[in-house]
Each structure stands twice: as structure tokens, then as C-alpha cells.
């Protein structure tokens, strides 16, 4: 497993959110952990977005997992930055995308599909969900 890049949000001196992009052979794994609640998440994650744009096209990827199971909350201030991260995946690497999420979580079941832009046919065709119980 090779870590490609990661991004982190600090709030009050503590790490409250981090996302890591890892490569396991040809399998890209993006994890999302913690909460996004800060006013301007781009302040912390713009470098991560720039790094994703640089490193993802250089990888040989056949499938991707985006794991949201440990992302407990995203307020509306965080919607666009999540969209930018998932866009980087859909636009820069090929193959199927599995989205891991919590089965009975309102934000992951109702709003996350909007942020993934599943209304776009080509994105929906590449995407499947793996619903898991809350950890």
C-alpha cells in the first residue's frame, strides 16, 4: 500500500478531518474520516486538491474505493470541497468506483449521492454503493 497524498483540516489545534489517497496495486483507495464543520474547508484542503490533480493521472488505476464510513458529519460549508475531491477521482482515473457508506445515515444516503453527481449517467454507470453498519 502506497500513500499518494493526504489532506487534513485542523480546528482549535486538533485534526478534525483527514482524507488519504492510497494505492494498493491498481486499486485506488480514498478514505474520508472525521467531520467537516469549518467555515472555509478550502483553506486547509486546496493543497490536497492540487496534489490529487498532479498524482492521480500518473497512476495505473483499474478500480477505486471511496470510503466515507468514518466521516461522521459534513455541514453545508463542506459540500463543494467533497464534490471537488470526488470529481478528481471520476475525471482523472478510469474504472469502477465503490462508495462505502453507513446504511442508515441521512447525510451519506441522501446528500452524498448528490455530491457524487449521480444524476450524470456516465458517473452513475461507474458507481456502486457498499452500505455498512455504523462503526
Amino acid at each position: 500500500m502506497k500513500v499518494l497524498t493526504y489532506g487534513e483540516i485542523m480546528d482549535g489545534g486538533l485534526s478534525v478531518f483527514h482524507s488519504v489517497a492510497k494505492l494498493d496495486d491498481h486499486h485506488l483507495i480514498l478514505t474520508f474520516e472525521g467531520v467537516i464543520r469549518v467555515d472555509n474547508p478550502y483553506r486547509y484542503l486546496h493543497t490536497y486538491l492540487e496534489e490529487l490533480a498532479k498524482v492521480l493521472p500518473r497512476q495505473s488505476v483499474t478500480e477505486t474505493t471511496m470510503d466515507f464510513v468514518k466521516m461522521r458529519f459534513c455541514n453545508s460549508n463542506g459540500f463543494y470541497v467533497i464534490m471537488d475531491i470526488v470529481d478528481a477521482v471520476y475525471n482523472l482515473v478510469p474504472g469502477r468506483v465503490t462508495v462505502r457508506r453507513i446504511a442508515d445515515d441521512d447525510w451519506q444516503c441522501e446528500t452524498l449521492p448528490i455530491l457524487l453527481n449521480l444524476s450524470e449517467e456516465h458517473i452513475a454507470a461507474r458507481t456502486n454503493f457498499e452500505d455498512v453498519k455504523a462503526p
Binding site: 455541514n75 463543494y80 464534490m83 441521512d106 446528500t111 448528490i114
Partner: peptide, 26 residues
């Protein structure tokens, strides 16, 4: 909610997304 998010994404405008998610999502 979806239409508003997509429309405002270009300039990252917020205004009301939080309220919309409370009815649409919760």
C-alpha cells in the same frame, strides 16, 4: 437541494444550503 448545489458550485455560494439539507436530507 441538488439543483441549488450544482447551480451555485461555480462561485461556491452557500446561502440556504443548510436549510435545504434539513428538509431534503433529514
Amino acid at each position: 437541494l441538488a439543483d441549488t448545489v450544482y447551480r451555485r458550485r461555480i462561485d461556491k455560494a452557500k446561502g440556504g444550503l443548510g436549510l435545504m439539507r434539513l428538509t431534503a436530507e433529514s
